[in-house]
Amino acid sequence: MDSEFILSQADGRPMYLQIIEQIKRRISIGDWPAGHKLPSIREFAVSLRVSVITVKRAYQELESEGVITTQHGKGSFVSIDSQLDEQLREKDMNQHLVEAIKIAESLGLSEKEIKLRIEQLYRQSSKPKTTNQS
């Protein structure tokens, strides 16, 4: 389980953010369902070969986001919230879009041009589907 977590120093992002992202991915793909017990901070740190304080910080942030809950003396668990996976993916998508907007702005694209670009790409990448959503 833990061996599938890979932290990279070439990643550029702080270690705790990489841990958060990988835990969220675990949860969003359903590997860690609601109620799943997370490894203890110390065990996790030792298996990832990072400091305890880094994992502690990742857990604290996940807790404040409501992704996990910590019960004193029992450990940390994936929050029981059926909406969570979807919320996480939505948040993830928004982050990517915000990044894309930043890049577009630095290239000098206007809001209109960005929207146009998204529409073009959408048409290219998505296969014709029946749209049954209003």
């Binding site: 120093q9 070969r49 990072v50 400091s51 305890v52 304080i53």
Partner: peptide, 10 residues
Amino acid sequence: TQDVEQLSDE
């Protein structure tokens, strides 16, 4: 510094 950054609490 890479080792220190990865391993240290303090």
